[in-house]
């Protein structure tokens, strides 16, 4: 039995102009200690998927179908009060922009102690010790001093370290990291990812890493999910997908990596943009941008076909599979 199970999840936004389907049926499992990456362009529904795991989508969005279960709880139907015992305690989240994630008017120490006391019966002294211990774990220089400082006194990388320390405070089973390094300097990015990886490995924490950086995914995760217009189009072990992508979109993403282009040459790119959620084309959502589009792709929507621990949602791929048989 896996730790977290997402099944046929659908998320919609009720707007005046009608319903927008941001996530159109995705399923995946996460085992204990496993690290999984979700990649895709902006607007693919990565962050919405992450938020819906904690049932945190704000109005007018709501979970319109499917279920999310964690251990023996069904997160998608739980009340806010019940969810509060899981959020931050068993499932923690790290956000994109460390500048915005810490409360500007409370000291680092206050915020850490508060997080501990919200979930565990603990007096202030012990909580402070625990906070100090965690700050040391994330390799922050002079941690005693940091406890008394306000967020604006720390640098971006240091803030993200503090945020990771806060996420780890209550020994969670799962950490969801929503583009944790996007807002940081490139050199700091590597440090932070290394730290996150090290801490997850040492503490047996499962990680859901949301990013559009395939390089980061290749270095940190074991499995990867590629999303496009609210659906999973390819999923499997990270090595397999990076080495041998099956979906034309994934192929395009990998070809677009700057390392693939020779100096002085133009970078490869996938032409066009992700479709607007209210104007998803019929058939395969990727068909207007795909170089292999056929008649079939415009008419029928491909299904996610699983084979050997991999799943691909592409008409060409299923044709090929049929052919091979």
């Amino acid at each position: 039995m896996s730790l977290l199970q997402v099944k046929d999840l659908e998320v919609s936004f009720k707007l005046r102009t009608g319903e927008l389907h941001a996530i159109r049926g995705i399923s995946f499992d996460l085992n204990k200690g496993e690290r999984i990456g979700i990649v895709g362009e902006s607007g693919a529904g990565k962050s919405v998927a992450a938020f819906s795991i904690l049932n945190l989508i704000s109005q007018p969005g709501y979970i319109s179908g499917g279920s999310i279960s964690y251990k023996d709880h069904t997160l998608s139907t739980m009340s806010d009060a019940e969810l509060a015992t899981i959020r931050g305690n068993q499932i923690a989240m790290i956000f994109q922009d460390p500048m915005m994630t810490l409360n500007p008017v409370l000291t680092i120490g206050t915020q850490m102690i508060e997080t501990l006391q919200a979930h565990q019966k603990m007096d202030k002294k012990t909580a402070e010790k625990e906070a100090l211990h965690r700050l040391k774990q994330v390799h922050i220089p002079s941690p005693e001093k940091r406890l008394k400082q306000y967020p604006h006194e720390l640098s971006g990388g240091m803030k993200q370290r503090v945020i990771i320390a806060i996420a780890l405070l209550n020994n969670p089973d799962i950490i969801i990291a929503d583009e944790p390094t996007t807002a940081l300097d490139v050199t700091i990015q590597a440090e932070i990812m290394e730290l996150l990886l090290e801490l997850c490995k040492n503490n047996g924490v499962s990680l859901i890493l949301i990013t559009h950086d395939l390089g980061v995914v290749a270095q940190t995760t074991e499995k990867v999910i590629v999303m496009y217009a609210g659906k999973i189009i390819e999923q499997g072990s990270t090595r397999d997908i990076i080495d041998n992508p099956n979906h034309p979109y994934t192929q395009g993403l990998i070809k677009a990596l700057p390392q693939k282009a020779a100096p002085g040459e133009m970078l490869n790119q996938i032409p066009g943009n992700m479709p607007q959620l209210d104007a998803i084309p019929t058939g395969c959502a990727f068909n207007p941008r795909c170089e292999h589009t056929t008649e079939l792709c415009i008419k029928t929507e491909p299904e996610l076909i699983a084979k050997d621990n991999r799943a691909v949602s592409c008409n060409l791929y299923s044709e090929r599979l049929k052919h091979d048989k």
Binding site: L56, D80, L83, I86, R87, D97, T101, E114, H119
Partner: peptide
């Protein structure tokens, strides 16, 4: 609208808090 409020919710704090 700022993220630290989302972060506070993610940490499981009550609405009053």
């Amino acid at each position: 609208e700022k993220e630290y409020i989302d972060a506070a919710r993610v940490l499981g704090f009550s609405s009053i808090r």
